[in-house]
């Protein structure tokens, strides 16, 4: 998951590396994802996500398309 100045820079990078464009979203959404995924990781009560919990965490921050489906 890389950081770019803009969508134009993503497009240029994909052309350079001959890669398909994946999923692009704003930093603020990335912040919400990071908080939801890692926010409680230092708690002694933390336990690994089940696949269902992991999927729900992605969905809850608005990442709901097929790209974000954990099981194919």
């Amino acid at each position: 998951m890389l950081l770019f100045r803009s969508e134009e820079h993503v497009a240029r990078w994909c052309r350079i590396w001959k890669l398909r464009r994946g999923a692009v979203f704003p930093l603020q959404q990335g912040l919400r994802l990071a908080k939801a995924w890692y926010g409680d990781r230092l708690s002694p009560k933390w336990r690994p996500f089940s696949p269902q919990q992991a999927q729900a965490t992605l969905n809850n921050v608005g990442l709901r398309s097929a790209f974000w489906r954990l099981s194919s």
Binding site: L3, V10, W13, G22, A23, P26, L27, G30, L70, S71
Partner: peptide, 12 residues
Amino acid sequence: TKGVIHFAVPAS
């Protein structure tokens, strides 16, 4: 902060 995040690899 301005910028965007790109995920190249699908979650699966």
